[in-house]
């Protein structure tokens, strides 16, 4: 998927990944790729500013540890983040259902169902 199209939904995707459990930045990026079957291949450099922004907004928290001699920052979703995820996921469901209804059969056959 084009990274520009993804950007608008990046916060929702990051919150959804971290709702499964705490993870460091690289693991979040990896999970995005795996869970989308490789569809979401956005520039990795865009993920960290988004994670920092979400942390600043109180939707995520982070902790430092030392792994293999390297400092590692692990992110975890906050209570506020879970509430935001529920709200954003619900909005996305309404939006995607509406888009699916409008598109109808075009997405599968390339022809509208009434044609």
């Amino acid at each position: 998927m084009k990274s520009q199209a993804l950007k608008g939904h990046l916060d929702l995707l990051l919150l959804a990944i971290l709702a499964e459990g705490p993870a460091h930045g690289y693991a979040v990026i990896e999970a995005l790729g795996v869970r989308s079957d490789g569809e979401f291949d956005l520039p990795e450099g865009t993920v960290y500013p988004a994670l920092h922004r979400l942390e600043k907004a109180g939707l995520l928290g982070s902790e430092w540890s030392v792994v293999g001699g390297r400092r590692r920052r692990t992110y975890a979703i906050s209570t506020q983040g879970r509430a935001a995820l529920t709200e954003q996921a619900s909005a996305w469901d309404r939006f995607s259902s509406a888009v699916a209804r409008v598109i109808g059969d075009h997405s599968a056959n390339g022809e509208p169902s009434w044609a």
Binding site: G25, E44, Y48, R73
Partner: peptide, 17 residues
């Protein structure tokens, strides 16, 4: 320092993979 440490961890983890 934190931003550099996080970026270094990302790059070295990615390279290891």
């Amino acid at each position: 320092e934190d931003l550099l440490a996080e970026t270094e961890d990302h790059l070295r983890t990615a390279a290891e993979r």
